[in-house]
Nucleic acid binder design. Structure first.
Lengths: 271, 271
DNA sequence: CCCCTTTAGTTGATGACATAAACTATAAGG
DNA sequence: CCTTATAGTTTATGTCATCAACTAAAGGGG
């Protein structure tokens, strides 16, 4: 497959080389730009990723980057696929352990790059690394009897869950560094402010929640931690129980399930 | 509860009036600003929401807005809580129907405001409407036997799912309007481009997916539709099956579950 | 060996944006 | 009337993405 059979953005995502060796040779390339942008985001947050800053870091002018990345949004996409990296090799006895492994690894990627979940979403996933993750996810589900749409939906639910939990802990971490407090203090402050605001009559159940000790004794857990926290595990197992139900239904009634699970392209984000 | 017992941002979210009636009376207020910003976002997308444009729409100068909203990010937060609106009243026989109702209503909010899922996330939810949604969600779960943390986690999983599916269909809609094609064409183009890119040897399962007809015959569905699509329903039921398992476990072993589900403040986003 | 084409990187400019500081305007109350 | 507190305006600053026109450096054909 050559460069021109595909939109230029996809071409750069997949690092398709333009065949010609004419003209001045490039000193810069997509890879270096993306790596620099990622370093910058890791160090100073996503808002520090600016074309001028990336260029300065590399010792080039801002505009030189446009020879390689097209636009800032495209750079975001490239960064997202880059940090995904190669998916884990999954040797699991059953789909359930396999999916758990997949989701935890995905969660760890977010832990290493807090900005990942904040990345402006753009289009369905199309990079080589996203595809690789999709591929191993599908392999785990291969013998479940689920149809294509159902498989994709399962991975979508899982990655959406990973993304949203990552977003929340990134948020907590941001609050922590903004106020200089620990995570426990941030959670406590939040709970107390809400307890003051939430009226017992208007919001009886929410008031009960904020009156509980849930936010008083909060955990202290660094975001990049290898082990997922209990909250993450709880939600993950919850989803996996749901998948189990779908798999059982598929195995009981394979034809019907194919129909039920067929959602025809609406959903295919596996980030 | 008075204004000064709480950070100013929360005060504006909850529309706490400053008691003093001194000085020049305000012509502008938070409500009008937020409404205008929301209209702008509905009409021209989130990127059209700019302090100058909002001000112009209202017939004031840009800087006047800062008397009422603090910052652009705060405006985003205010917009988010505003469009959430009052949660539905849920009269459901059991928690399962109740949660389904809750999630579908949440999904419909996103359908009415495609930019909602793109809103930069900032901090745990704290607005009156977010609290109201949290409240009815908790009420639905009241008699499940789940602990506070588990209840919050369930709502987190659900709303994360709603958010991520909303993000995807917004993305699809964006691609549709960008290229002027229908949703079906966009999906088809995507599937074909990926089929060309994805190598059968490197990515056997992904290649099989893109070789399938999943993306060829795609649905045409407007985003703001009242009825959720089959993909949404599939994932929702999957999650609800998972919740059912958690509820069964909680009822079987109430004490143990309290411990398992206790995640102490890590997770409380119900947007 | 020179020039032409092609590709890479640079210069300078533009318009939009968020936000800060200092200003003017307008109310109530003493 | 004058003080004080609050609302809205003016003016300015620095940052940003991106455009258009430029210079620079390679290789190939004459």
């Amino acid at each position: 497959m050559t460069v021109d059979e595909v939109p230029p953005t996809l071409g750069r995502l997949w690092r398709l080389r333009s065949g010609s060796r004419l003209g001045r040779p490039a000193e810069l390339d997509v890879e270096r730009i993306v790596r620099t942008a990622v370093d910058l985001a890791d160090r100073d947050g996503l808002s520090a990723v600016t074309l001028s800053r990336v260029a300065k870091e590399l010792g080039f002018t801002t505009m030189s980057l446009y020879r390689h990345v097209g636009s800032k949004d495209e750079l975001y996409v490239l960064m997202g696929d880059h940090v995904l990296g190669a998916p884990p090799e999954i040797h699991a006895a059953d789909w359930r352990d396999g999916l758990r492994h997949w989701a935890v690894a995905h969660r760890q990627v977010h832990g290493r790059h807090e900005w990942l979940a904040r990345l402006p979403v753009s289009g369905p996933p199309g990079g080589p690394n996203a595809t690789a993750w999709l591929d191993v996810g599908l392999r785990v589900l291969r013998d479940t009897g689920l149809g294509w749409a159902a498989k994709v939906n399962v991975l979508t639910v899982l990655s959406g869950y990973v993304r949203s939990t990552a977003l929340q802990s990134a948020e907590l971490a941001a609050g922590r560094s903004r106020t200089g407090q620990g995570a426990a203090e941030v959670a406590r402050e939040y709970g107390r402010a809400m307890a003051r605001l939430v009226d017992r009559d208007r919001f009886p159940d929410a008031a009960a929640l904020f009156a509980s000790d849930l936010f008083e004794s909060a955990p202290t857990r660094p975001a990049a931690q290898a082990e997922p926290g209990p909250a993450f595990t709880f939600g993950l197992d919850l989803i996996l129980d749901g998948v189990a139900a779908a798999v059982d239904a598929a195995r009981a009634e394979p034809v019907r399930t194919r129909k039920t699970g067929n959602t025809r392209g609406e959903t295919c984000d596996t980030r």
